[in-house]
Every structure is written in structure tokens, then in C-alpha cells.
Amino acid sequence: MNKNIQLDKARKQKNGGLADKEDFAKVRLEINGRPIIRAIFPATSLLEFIREELGLTGTKKGCDLGDCGLCTVLLDGKPVLSCLMLALDAEDHQITTIEGLTNGGELHPIQEAMLKHGAVQCGYCSPAMVLNGVHLLDTHKNPDQMAIKEAISGTLCRCTGYTKIEKAFLAVTHQKGAKV
């Protein structure tokens, strides 16, 4: 695993305010369609990499322990907890964060529905919920309520009781069902 990791010996030298004895590792991955190559601390989680190295703050940190699911991103289209994964383990994979979903364009149908149905309150879980929804639509032709509950159950929401999130998802899947 991580066969592409190469310790960047040059970085062992003094470098600004940074440490002089830490080992740096090179990581190469694709985030939101953009190839990224960086030298990082090997222990950097994918979450820390996304938020701190790349400044993509749409991905939220809620616990850093894999309990809350707020840091969910898509890894090759599948939802993963970015806090439980090393950035190095994402080597050569395609990551989609909330910023990559619309890229400034139109809202995704899931986002549109969550907006309309009042599924957003404080919004701290919204990016993760949206990505859960995107994966659900990608993998289910016509998901029922149980499938929706399952899809969002890995991400905590304390404001909505999930009611309106489910309602929004159901509205999208109904639209989708009608099209099929």
C-alpha cells in the first residue's frame, strides 16, 4: 500500500518556521477534478489535508473520531469519513468535496430540494448530507424511505430531526422515479 510514497529528503532541511526533523511524504491525488501534488506530514488525515492544506472548508470537522460523519467526502464516488483516512491513503483516488459538486454552477437536485424543503437549519451537516444524497441517487434507481434513512444515518444532524432532510430526498427520488 502507498507504493508511491516517497520521503522528501530535501524537506528535512530547515524550512521557515517548520520543523527540521520531520519526514515529509509526497501525496498525489485528484480533488474536485484537479490533480494535486503536495508534500505533507505522513500523519495528515484526509480531512486535515482538505481543510488546512487546500483550504476547502466546506468539509466540516465535528469529532475527528469517525463518530459524527460531518467530514464525509466522496472517494471515487463513495462516501467516506475523511477524518479516519490518511491523505496518503487517498493517493491516486478521486475525491469530491462539496465545493466540487457544483463548481459554482447550478445546484445539484439534492441541494435544490434541501433548500426548498427547509432541510437546512444550522447547515453544519449540510455538505455531508448533500454528498450522502448524491451517492444515494447514483446508486439507487428509486430509493424508498428506508434507503434514504440508511443513506443519511452516518451523519449526525441535531437541528432537523432528519425529518425535512428525508422529505427533500424523497422529493428528488420521486422526480427521478418519474423520469425513469
Binding site: 462539496i98 465545493e99 445546484l107 441541494q111 437546512v120
Partner: peptide
Amino acid sequence: MLGARDKLTG
């Protein structure tokens, strides 16, 4: 809600 769009797009 105002701001909901920004919350949804991160």
C-alpha cells in the same frame, strides 16, 4: 432560510 444556499454549497 437566508444563507441556506451557502450552507449547501460549502
